[in-house]
Computed example of a mutant assay.
Amino acid sequence: MSERPLVAVVAMAMNGVIGREGEMPWRLKSDLKRYRQLTMGKPMIMGRKTLVSIGRVLDGRDSVVLSRGRELPFEGAHLADTAESAVAIADDLAGRRGAEEIAVVGGAEIYRLFLDRLVRLHVTHVEAEPEGDARFPPIDPRVWRLVRLDPALTGPGDSAPTRYALYERRA
């Protein structure tokens, strides 16, 4: 069990799609800035495919990769073979960095695996319905309370409008 809360950071289409063939099915330059703000200085738990889709270990953050494999695609990432070891590694890294929380950043299997442990969801709702092969689990209003919803925004370099939502687990 982690000393620090686990929070999800995800961009999700109206139909629940978060990915297609290892890529995001949209281009959201403005959301990448939000992602950076939400994850900077924190350990991020992710699957191997998510790290591959990012293309590198991100600066100012620790990448804890939960994978059945024994090799990581990029130097500097931390390998975990169970959810418990991923949380333990991330918690240790958070302690070293002084981070107050651990970000769970995908993909679909990782979100499902940690859903019951998450205390907050930082969701960018993408106002589109692309085809895809990876989906975020449904956000059950009996479990999650919407505490913030920003109006739709589209910035330069965005292929669809988005709304940012913050959900907190109900007591």
Rank of each mutant, 00 (worst) to 15 (best):
M1D: 05
R4G: 04
R4W: 03
L6M: 07
A8K: 00
M14L: 14
V17H: 03
G19W: 10
G22W: 05
L28N: 00
K29P: 13
Y35C: 08
R36Q: 15
L38T: 10
L38F: 13
T39N: 06
M46G: 02
K49P: 08
L51T: 04
L51P: 02
R56P: 04
V57G: 01
L58F: 13
G60E: 08
S63E: 05
L66G: 03
S67G: 04
G69M: 10
A77M: 01
A77F: 03
L79F: 08
S85C: 09
A88E: 08
A88H: 01
I89V: 12
I89N: 02
A90S: 11
A90I: 05
A94N: 06
A99M: 07
E100I: 01
E101L: 10
V104K: 02
V105K: 01
V105R: 01
G106S: 06
G106A: 04
G107A: 09
R112Y: 08
F114R: 12
R117Y: 02
V119M: 10
H125S: 06
H125L: 15
A128P: 05
A128T: 13
A128S: 12
E129W: 10
E129P: 14
E131T: 12
G132Q: 02
R135F: 14
D140E: 14
P141K: 06
R148N: 14
D150T: 12
D150N: 10
P151T: 10
P151W: 09
A152S: 15
A152K: 04
T154R: 15
T154Y: 11
G157Y: 06
T162L: 09
R163A: 10
Y167P: 03
